[in-house]
Design a protein around this nucleic acid. Structure first.
Lengths: 213, 213
DNA sequence: CAGCCTTATGCAACTAGTTGCATATCCTCT
DNA sequence: AGAGGATATGCAACTAGTTGCATAAGGCTG
């Protein structure tokens, strides 16, 4: 149950409407807890129903009209309770890693291009984070809240830095797999091709030891 | 739709029963794509129904009795197709980061202990990965499949290394927040306490600028 | 042979996240 | 005034992941 607490945090930072929240999510909290506007509206409804937040405009449940929310004492208490609560770290769940694993068995065909693409994306994200850091956290020596927010941003920077590095490294590995040293020893039998152990439909091109189709 | 493909990969590496798969997930693929035995059984049923895998024992749908599966050509083809497919990187979704963000607004009360706990967990995980690396990937200079699997493991190592580092660093930050320099300047007015902007129930202990409850 | 533990398979209900679409208001341009 | 786009709220259906529990077979032990 993280989304409602993310929303409470955002609303405490600044009372907002659903769309405003969505936009702010897109450029801060959403980096590590994305949410669509549909999710946010649903959750706002629940939070209002349970008395954690309330609309600023007392009467006006009109459909296409802006509706701003603020956090009630109950909501703040709930957020404080949740903050002190413990939870196990989340697993990674990055399909790209699964694809590598699969490629180890079934052939690494389109993989390099995909790694390249991710590398670009992560470089961009990293640049974006650095920009935010430069802009919002210049001197250090600030208050407690800001320091904590900075720590969160540093997590984003650290993670993106990791991905950029790992992707570059893995692309290297992939290249040496696809083009074994052309100047070195004999390129006749690169190594034991034990990868595709039992399967039909495996042409096994002789120029590519990684490949099963 | 990643789980079915994770299962296909695992089954290609070695035909197995549901429970065996579950155990193998727990110590390899599951590190970056966890799955419970219930999920796995359900998915095995679907994969069998769609002709991607089949049971090795032709007749014997007995309840408490082992049932092993192998991948069919169709399943291998599907896995190859999926491997070449592209997908956006997944967002992080780590509630701990949300908690930090919340703590910036609502007070960092139980946070240090929680960070400490995570630090221990990540150190253990990192040690586990290093152990696997030492044991399963000793010399390098191996075949393509193994190199790819090693790359995946390196991702795990890199991520855990990042977390260990970031948690240590953030714990430091947190300490300096909770105990401002006792030998340095005047501790009377640490800095602008703009953190809790609008809220009731905020005692604001004078010894802790980070705290709102 | 009865009881109990381990191995093994599986259903059902729930929760959370995703996707597609519907609809209302307000503002601007013609 | 009417058309069209931007702003804004929201429902509904679907998909995927989680949790709790039921049940059967097989082996070990008193």
């Amino acid at each position: 149950m993280s989304l409602p607490h993310a929303i409470l945090t955002a609303l405490l930072e600044k009372p907002s409407s659903g769309l405003e929240l969505t936009r702010r999510f897109d450029k801060s909290i959403g980096f590590f807890w994305p949410a669509t506007h549909q999710q946010i509206y649903r959750e706002l409804g629940r939070l209002e129903a349970s008395g954690h937040i309330r609309a600023l405009q007392p009467e006006a449940p009109v459909r296409g009209q802006k509706k701003e929310y603020e956090v009630l004492p109950d909501g703040r208490a709930e957020l404080a309770r949740w903050t002190a609560e413990g939870a196990e770290p989340r697993a990674v769940r990055e399909p790209l890693l699964l694809r590598l694993r699969a490629a180890a068995v079934v052939g690494a065909d389109g993989l390099a291009a995909e790694l390249e693409r991710h590398l670009t994306l992560h470089r961009e994200q990293l640049a974006g984070y650095r920009e935010i850091e430069r802009h919002d956290f210049p001197a250090e020596r600030t208050d407690a809240g800001t320091r904590l927010q900075h720590a969160v941003l540093r997590a984003g920077i650290g993670l993106e830095t990791f991905w950029v590095q790992w992707l570059a490294e893995t692309l290297d590995t992939l290249e040496t797999l696809e083009a074994p040293p052309p100047a070195a020893p004999a390129p006749s039998a690169p190594s034991a091709p034990s990868t595709p152990p039992a399967s039909p439909a495996s042409p096994a091109s002789p120029t590519d030891p990684a490949n099963g189709s």
